[in-house]
Amino acid sequence: MKFKREPREELELNLTPLIDVVFLLLIFFMVSTTFQKESEISLQLPRASDTETESSQDRIEIVINAAGHYFINDQELVNSDVATVQNALYKISGGKRDIPLTIRADAQAPHQSVVTAMDAAGQLGMLKMSIATSRSTD
């Protein structure tokens, strides 16, 4: 018996389905991935000057001690309400909104006391408000 040998076909590996699956996975991950953009806040920081331009008569100074008591131009207020601070600021400024206002707070003063002073000045529409700090000697 003589068997006839037929030529064998060469086996080939078809890569088309594999490429299709990889392509679909790539599309899936691209669509389902969320990219978060880091937010940035653009600030213009204030600059300090070393010169004294206004006399002490033309400025208002709010001092807040460690206990949270208010002193406006060296006069202590009877209580710490926003309305009291606002009335005192209005009386001293005479209704003028462009008088410079400086807030000096003790480092141990409650944060709410500083916010209350800023809120009272903001409700009056004070245009020139600054917070005084001291330089560290490190």
Rank of each mutant, 00 (worst) to 15 (best):
V31W: 02
T33N: 00
R47C: 00
T51R: 00
D50A: 09
S49Y: 06
F23A: 08
S42D: 13
T16N: 14
M30V: 02
L24I: 11
L24M: 09
L24D: 07
S42F: 09
F35E: 04
K37Q: 09
Q44R: 03
S32G: 08
F29W: 15
S32E: 12
M30R: 01
V31G: 01
E40F: 11
I27H: 04
V21L: 13
E40R: 08
V21H: 06
E54H: 04
L26G: 14
Q36P: 00
R47T: 01
E54C: 03
L45F: 13
K37E: 04
Q36F: 12
S55T: 14
K37C: 00
V21Y: 06
V21P: 02
I19D: 05
T34N: 14
E52W: 06
S32F: 14
S32N: 10
Q57M: 09
I41L: 05
S42A: 08
D50T: 08
S39F: 08
P17S: 11
I41C: 02
F29Y: 15
I27C: 03
I41R: 01
T51K: 02
E38K: 11
V22S: 06
Q36A: 13
T51S: 01
F29A: 11
L18V: 14
L26T: 14
I19K: 13
L25H: 00
T33W: 02
S39C: 04
I19H: 10
L25E: 01
T34E: 14
S49L: 08
V21R: 13
E54G: 02
T53N: 10
I19W: 11
P17F: 09
V31M: 07
E54F: 05
T53Y: 09
E38M: 04
T53F: 14
L43H: 02
F28D: 03
V31Q: 05
D20V: 15
D50S: 07
D50R: 06
E52Q: 11
R47Q: 01
L18E: 11
D20C: 15
Q57F: 10
Q57T: 13
I19N: 09
S39N: 10
P46A: 00
E38C: 03
T16M: 10
E40K: 07
S39E: 10
F28I: 08
V21K: 14
S49Q: 11
V21F: 07
